[in-house]
């Protein structure tokens, strides 16, 4: 119990807040890494997922591959990349993108996959082009799944972005590693709390987004 109190005291201490090594800086870095890594995964994963979902091509291969990719230990991937690129933020960002990709890809493709075949047939029967089908029917209807995928990707990345500090990139992991090596457990716990808080904030954002998308989804389905 004592550690909990000390951890909150650590966060509350104004001396830990500001400066290049302060909570705000580290929290900001952590958030930035999360956004960049998830964004990069979205840039690759969404178009690829839509292509697979729309055409139905390469599904078995991609689903198998992303399943396997989920099992990749991020620290291993990070170290492997860093041995080529050197230390800095490049390697951890790449490793985090690899971590986020399967969820995003699955979300994008599952959203299209979940649309009932008669809906697609009806759209085609109305004379929609492939592009119109994708942009007006499949993407809007698949949105809740995509948001779900982005949501779990973001959650994973927030939790794992502590590894950026492994190669000198900062973020909340800086407090974790320092606390671990110097037996400053309140500091470690404080860093964990901050990461959890960031994850919860992210969850709330996505829950709101999902509601909005759900409402639109409903409106579309009932049209």
């Amino acid at each position: 119990m004592n550690y909990f109190v000390e951890a909150f005291a650590w966060i509350a201490d104004p001396a830990h807040r500001t400066g290049p090594d302060g909570i705000w800086t580290r929290l900001g870095q952590h958030l930035a890494y999360t956004l960049i890594a998830t964004g990069a995964a979205a840039l690759i994963g969404i178009p690829l997922g839509y292509w697979i979902g729309h055409t139905g091509r390469g599904k078995g291969l991609i689903v198998g591959a992303t399943g396997a990719a989920r099992a990749l230990p991020t620290l291993g991937v990070l170290t492997l990349i860093a041995l080529f690129t050197g230390v800095g933020v490049g390697a951890p960002l790449a490793a985090l993108s690899v971590l986020a990709l399967p969820s995003v890809l699955a979300g994008a493709y599952a959203g299209l996959e979940a649309i009932p075949a008669p809906t697609i047939d009806a759209a085609r029967a109305q004379g929609m082009s492939e592009w119109q089908l994708l942009s007006r029917v499949e993407i809007p209807l698949g949105l809740p799944h995509l948001i779900g995928g982005l949501r779990s990707a973001t959650l994973q990345v927030v939790a794992t972005a502590t590894l950026v500090a492994y190669v000198g990139g900062g973020g909340l992991g800086r407090f974790l590693f320092l606390g671990l090596k110097t037996q400053d457990y309140p500091q470690m716990l404080a860093a964990s709390f901050l990461a959890v808080a960031l994850a919860i904030a992210g969850e709330i954002c996505f829950a709101v987004l999902a509601r909005i998308a759900g409402r639109r989804h409903h409106a579309l389905s009932n049209r």
């Binding site: 230390v87 492994y166 190669v167």
Partner: peptide, 17 residues
């Protein structure tokens, strides 16, 4: 520059780079 691999490959790489 914090590198957490206890002076192993990544630290050596940073020095050589």
């Amino acid at each position: 520059t914090p590198i957490e691999d206890s002076g192993s490959a990544l630290t050596v790489k940073a020095l050589l780079d």
